[in-house]
């Protein structure tokens, strides 16, 4: 019992550090310190979570953290300064992927949210959809900036928007069936695949120049999916940190779009609206 209180208190320390760190990141003089303050908050949050009563599977946790460290540290240290934006896209993507995978495991462990409260199912499925969109969308953004995929807008013309709408509705339809009691594995896989294709289809038609704004948008989305995951798991740290990123990321996306004299709807819809001019510019 008392250990739960300690965890909650440590979470409060972590939020304070996150918010203070973020405030620092908005000013040029305090930014470096702000970043490390936020990182310290993350350390506190992780330690607090490991104190949760009944924690087990230590080998799994250790293995996951070891793999993550072994991959994350060298790639962050070695990436060229000019390749930073795509690196951020990649890190954002794996965060979204983590959310989607956790939601998938939740589905499997609870046999299709059988007996879970409705809000747990809704929040988990929301985070699965958004996480999957963010993962695949970010991968495409990475590919475009790294020039693995052509930086030019790739689209299927007028059919793009109706197709995206169909994919979104399909993801939601899978979610509704699951909430309605469906527990077949194919349902959650269908949901993840439909939202994955949606993520790819939304980002593919966007030109390379608009990519930073798109990455920022996907970053905000991953934050929202983390907050939803927090609601599902009843974990305040996830709710607070996820939502702060969701909100601040949205504002930041707006600021970035404004600085480029673009609007977010115009960028996201860029594949068919301004696609023509974007193509000629990008080839130059």
């Amino acid at each position: 019992m008392s250990r739960d209180v300690v965890i909650q208190l440590l979470y409060i320390v972590a939020f304070a550090l996150f918010i203070y760190g973020l405030m620092g990141l908005t000013g040029p003089r305090t930014a470096v310190r702000g970043n490390w303050i936020a990182a310290a908050g993350m350390g506190v949050a992780v330690v607090a979570t490991l104190l949760t009563p009944g924690m087990g599977n230590w080998w799994l946790i250790l293995l996951g953290v070891a793999i993550g460290t072994a991959v994350g540290v060298p790639s962050a240290k070695q990436v060229k300064m000019t390749a930073m934006p795509q690196m951020v896209a990649l890190f954002n993507g794996v965060g979204g992927g983590a959310v989607a995978l956790i939601a998938w495991v939740e589905f499997r462990e609870s046999h299709g949210f059988d007996g879970s409260p409705a809000h747990v199912a809704v929040a988990s499925l929301f985070s699965a959809i958004v996480g999957s969109i963010s993962f695949w969308g970010s991968l495409v953004a990475y590919g475009k900036l790294q020039e693995v995929i052509t930086g030019r807008p790739v689209g299927i013309g007028r059919l793009q928007q109706p197709l995206n709408l169909v994919l979104l509705l399909a993801s939601i339809a899978f979610a509704v069936v699951i909430i309605g009691g469906g527990d077949a594995q194919l349902l959650i896989i269908g949901l993840l695949v439909a939202s994955a294709v949606l993520g790819v289809m939304v980002v593919l038609p966007i030109g390379g120049a608009d990519m930073p704004v798109v990455i920022s948008l996907l970053n905000a989305l991953t934050g929202l999916s983390a907050a939803a995951m927090g609601l599902a798991l009843d974990n305040t740290a996830l709710i607070v940190a996820g939502m702060i990123v969701g909100a601040s990321g949205t504002i930041l996306t707006n600021l970035m779009a404004k600085a480029m004299n673009r609007s977010i709807p115009a960028i996201v819809a860029g594949g068919f609206g301004g696609g023509g001019s974007g193509t000629t510019q990008a080839t130059g």
Binding site: G95, V99, A226, V245, S248
Partner: peptide, 26 residues
């Protein structure tokens, strides 16, 4: 500071790690 701030908030939503720890640990 737009890009570093985006990167900083990106790191903070890595808090999803906690979700993985909880689901795996419990």
């Amino acid at each position: 500071l737009h890009t570093p701030l985006m990167s900083g908030t990106n790191a903070i939503h890595g808090i999803v790690l906690l979700g993985g720890l909880i689901v795996a640990g419990l």
